[in-house]
Design a protein around this nucleic acid. Structure first.
Lengths: 276, 276
DNA sequence: CCTCATCATTTCGCACTGCGGAACAACTTG
DNA sequence: CAAGTTGTTCCGCAGTGCGAAATGATGAGG
């Protein structure tokens, strides 16, 4: 059972299609670290009854989102999932634009500079540039860090409108009721910091030995909200440097990216039916 | 309407969860080439009625698979889709193993060497190595080529068991009834070729000016079926060279990859709950 | 060879969920 | 203001998805 995954208080929401949500939950239980899963394990992780899983895995296999090894009776993510990811990536022009600027900063600071998008209550790295230092933290594209405890996550939250932010914070608090105080305080602080200076800090908040700064990255024309961070091991990146030097530089990177995507010639819904 | 996408003859299959399939169809209409889509356009492409689309997009947005721009009222693939793709990629050890061998061959042949997985009726490039020649064909990871007309696709089909192959060919034929003859003949030929020599040819079958060879790549322990190809513009890669030199070399690459993944320490269903 | 496990699939009747036509609302355009 | 878009909400009906229990399918142990 993956934290928030379950159907929860959806009952009564006539708009919400439960069967779809459950099916996607099945896909979601697959992690990068583990191999193929059997129906049993999937049932355990999703908390759904076995027959339901049978039907969902069957359907997902038919559609190519799962691949089935009949010898071992286990499933893995299939071509459909891959394809979806590729298409999603292709639409992320930000990455291309931000990449060189991020690398530049990473070299200067000798730190890790990341670009992330939100996925539920995590930030998902979609790009990451390492400095020359070998002791960099190993977060590759695809890894996730918690929304509420990391600099990147807080920057993202700060970049939202009030209307979007409130329910999101509610969710976070509901998931980590024990750390409510710390989290809320951290976020509020981040919001203030970003109003004032454009970036926020996380000094040992995500992991005790890691420091970082974060800045929101709101693309023009409602093309989405992302966030940048710049971080590394605490003994290399002192709070003072982050605050006085790296933070402001990160903000500049964000501004340059936004500028570069200014007139993005966003093609809209091209008529291109038929082709594979 | 995307070719085969619709519900079709699913009626009667008590095992198939339609609502899930429809929801995934919604995700599927997003292409790499086009920007965000409105409900209307999604309805048009899926062939589903508007209220249904409303509910599905609502659900998918809630779950983070779509992101919504309320200003323009359009959707794009969201963090969930990205995350799924990353996890799927992470489970593709093949890529890591095959990469250097593929590049080597690409350099020798001065051609494009690709590794693909199946997605419905296409082969999806998951890795691609270019030779030094600038005139290489531009197929990046994430692009798709048709299953029945390409060397890679035919090699994949040939790698299936009879039991798996027959229904798949049926689907292809149903999708392209006009070219039935050509396709079936091409596949049968490929099967024979691969039995005999381990690779198959496609001389101008996918695009008139493109030639290529393909070889199936069946991983041990039922870890999945993939396919390799080696191809390029016809005036550079003559049929003779492909048949006598590149084909056999491609087969060797496939064998080396299978060998290297021989004792793959395939971890099964590690207990790792809780983490983000 | 036959238990007794475990795990996956199938059955089946019922309730409720998802469906979609039609009406409604929110904006643009001429 | 009328005549187009577009997206959302209603609401009654039917059919779909549900899940407890039964049935298979493998495999381990005696």
């Amino acid at each position: 059972m993956d934290g928030d995954s379950i159907r929860a208080e959806r009952t009564g929401d006539r708009q919400f299609v439960m069967a779809l949500a459950r099916g996607l939950d099945v896909l979601r239980v697959f992690r990068a670290e583990d191999g193929p899963l059997g129906n049993q394990e999937i049932a355990r992780r999703t908390g759904l009854p076995k027959p339901t899983i049978s039907r969902l895995t069957y359907t997902l296999t038919q559609l190519g989102y799962l691949s089935y090894d009949r010898r071992l009776g286990v499933y893995a993510l299939g071509g459909g999932a891959l394809a979806l990811g590729y298409v999603a990536l292709a639409n992320l022009d930000v990455r291309r634009v931000a990449r060189p600027l991020m690398q530049e900063l990473a070299d200067i600071c000798d730190a890790s500079v990341g670009l992330g998008a939100r996925d539920r209550l995590n930030m998902l790295y979609v790009e990451n540039c390492e400095g020359r230092n070998v002791v960099a933290l190993r977060v590759a594209a695809g890894s996730r860090i918690p929304l509420g405890q990391s600099a990147m996550g807080r920057a993202y939250i700060a970049g939202l409108t009030d209307k979007e932010r409130t329910p999101l914070i509610d969710q976070i608090v509901r998931k980590f009721p024990d750390e409510k105080q710390t989290i809320v305080r951290g976020i509020e602080r981040a919001i203030r910091d970003i109003e004032r200076r454009g970036f926020c800090l996380a000094i040992g908040d995500w992991r005790k030995d890691i420091n970082g700064v974060g800045a929101p990255l709101a693309l023009p024309n409602g093309a989405g909200l992302y966030a940048l961070n710049c971080g590394g091991p605490g003994y290399l990146l002192k709070g003072k440097d982050l605050e006085e030097t790296y933070g402001p530089m990160l903000v500049q990177v964000a501004q340059k990216v936004v500028g570069a995507m200014g007139a993005p010639a966003r093609r809209t819904a091209v008529e291109r039916r038929g082709a594979p």
